[in-house]
């Protein structure tokens, strides 16, 4: 063992025995104070919020992020325009709820989510979640974040939070674009639910928000899977592709009747299960099942990502 360090001048830093997470005597840092005093430097410890804010800034300053959100927003717009230009849709044909949108433009948002969730949303989430760690490794910025030091666990949490925020943004992009185009092209009025009840505009908005929340939650498990895969490689495209392929595999398995025993464990199993939110009264069963399943995926793949990343040699 090395001898313990006792000769370092005490003014050079916080003493070892003081956990650095405990706020030190608060020395205010007036803006522009450039007296690089180590004591001032170590007088406070930032939680992860600044790093998260920075993560979101980086995420949303990327053109790629906006391109994906715009592509998602285009889905309901295309649907609405197609419906507007064609003859009235017979009930029960086309994607679910398609026939409802001529009654209430707000339902373009719901239809857009229904159409997006099997492929377009997993595609964009796969890109973002697969990029989390592997993207930084590929750029080489991972080593600089780690020696800053960002802290491996903190970085992982911030990265996951960033991906989760993107899930919200992606869902919101579809829903909002759907509402806007729906209001422009269709009347906004009472709509008949799956249960046969009719609800007003206020209720419709609420239901749309519920569906958007459901879809967002649905994507959290996939995000955790992507985060884990992202810790396995330094090639972001590989992690993205693997995440997207896994989401497709999950959906295919979910469609095979021979694997019925497996279905409740597939992260995509409840993806289209939000019809219950469009009944009167709302049936919360599928929302809860979905939330538990996603939470399980987040726990398992979060732990795997931690296990992999906490001790990984960063050689990129």
């Amino acid at each position: 063992m090395l001898p313990s360090d006792s000769r370092v001048p005490s003014d050079s830093r916080v003493p070892d025995e003081v956990p650095s997470d405990v706020p030190q005597e608060s020395t205010s840092d007036p803006p522009g104070d450039l007296s690089f005093d180590p004591l001032v430097r170590h007088s406070r410890t930032a939680p992860g919020w600044e790093l998260l804010a920075s993560e979101l800034t980086v995420l949303f300053r990327r053109r790629r992020t906006w391109a994906m959100l715009l592509a998602l927003a285009a889905v309901p717009v295309l649907i609405a325009v197609a419906v507007r230009l064609s003859s009235p849709v017979a009930p029960g044909r086309g994607p679910a709820f398609l026939d409802r949108i001529t009654q209430n433009g707000l339902f373009v948002g719901v239809t857009g989510l229904v159409v997006s969730i099997p492929l377009f949303l997993p595609l964009t989430i796969g890109v973002i979640a697969g990029d989390t760690i592997a993207g930084e490794a590929g750029l080489g910025t991972l080593r600089y974040l780690l020696v800053a030091p960002a802290g491996r666990v903190r970085l992982l949490l911030v990265k996951y939070a960033g991906a989760a925020v993107f899930c919200v943004a992606a869902t919101v992009a579809v829903a909002v674009a759907g509402v806007v185009i729906g209001v422009l092209l269709f009347p906004v009025g009472p709509v008949t639910l799956l249960s046969g009840d009719t609800i007003g505009v206020g209720q419709s908005v609420l239901r749309l928000l519920l569906v958007a929340a459901y879809v967002t939650v649905s994507l959290l498990g996939l995000s955790a899977v992507g985060l884990f895969i992202s810790t396995l490689t330094e090639v972001p495209v590989g992690a993205m592709a693997a995440t997207i392929v896994l989401s497709v595999v999950s959906e295919v398995l979910d469609a095979l009747p021979q694997l019925v025993w497996l279905h409740p464990w597939l992260f995509s199993h409840y993806w289209l299960g939000f019809a219950d939110l469009l009944r009167q009264p709302v049936a919360w069963g599928s929302f809860a099942d979905n939330a538990w399943l996603q939470a399980g995926y987040v726990a398992v793949f979060g732990a795997l990502a931690y296990g992999r990343f906490a001790t990984k040699d960063v050689l990129s």
Partner: peptide, 16 residues
């Protein structure tokens, strides 16, 4: 961006 990763770096003086 990289400075926010340093937990001990004061945000008040970051710009400077």
């Amino acid at each position: 961006r990289l400075d926010t990763a340093d937990r001990d770096a004061p945000s008040g003086t970051r710009g400077a």
